[in-house]
Amino acid sequence: MSVLRVGFIVCAVVMCGASVLSTAACDRLPGRPAVEAVAAEGTAEWTTQVFNTSCRGCHAQGKEGSAVPLMDSEYWRAATDAQVVRAVLEGQGVLMPAFGPAAGGPFTPSQANALASGMRALWGGGLKPSTAISGTVQAGSADRGKSVFETACASCHGSAGSGGSAGSVTDPMYLRLISDQGLWTAVVAGRAALGSPAWNMPMPNRPSGLASAEVADVVAYLSSLRPRSASELKP
């Protein structure tokens, strides 16, 4: 009997204590809803949020992602912020959609600016865009480009469109899906994680990479191979 009574009193004291404590700590209980904080435009948190929902699907890092990895510094070496802003707002080539207001997209020009500089701050590795080569496509000679291709590129991409260990880049279907600017960025930035060197990095037949004029020539050459209409595409 007395054991029961003692037990009851202990229980009662414990429960009273718990309720007093929890009442006093009501503000710190885990269930209290957090006051919603919207990340301010331009902060690293905002950039990450926007990037993760709208960009990361194609532009990830390392081997991940089907388009230029924006979470690696190599791209930020090859492109200027203005270029990124334009691509975000107006799209680029066939497969990069426009996210700007003119296309009914979600980002205002100021948001696109904040996004570009925010991404550079996060992943640019503190590097400025390279001054050795332009970020945007430059005019070149397709004829010269053909010989550059045969000496510098064919060792991996195959001679005359045959494809090699790295696969064909002269395939007409491929060329129809990538713009000249896309080709330019692919040559300039490369994609180290997948074994594609940047333009000025050692290549099998070119220990010192390409000269900037050669980049323009080879892009002009590939561009000249692009079919202008579907009828040029022969099975």
Partner: peptide
């Protein structure tokens, strides 16, 4: 959601 790396690695440009 990016395409996983092992589905990109070793693929042709096309």
């Amino acid at each position: 959601l990016p395409t996983p790396g092992h589905f990109i690695d070793g693929r042709t440009p096309l």
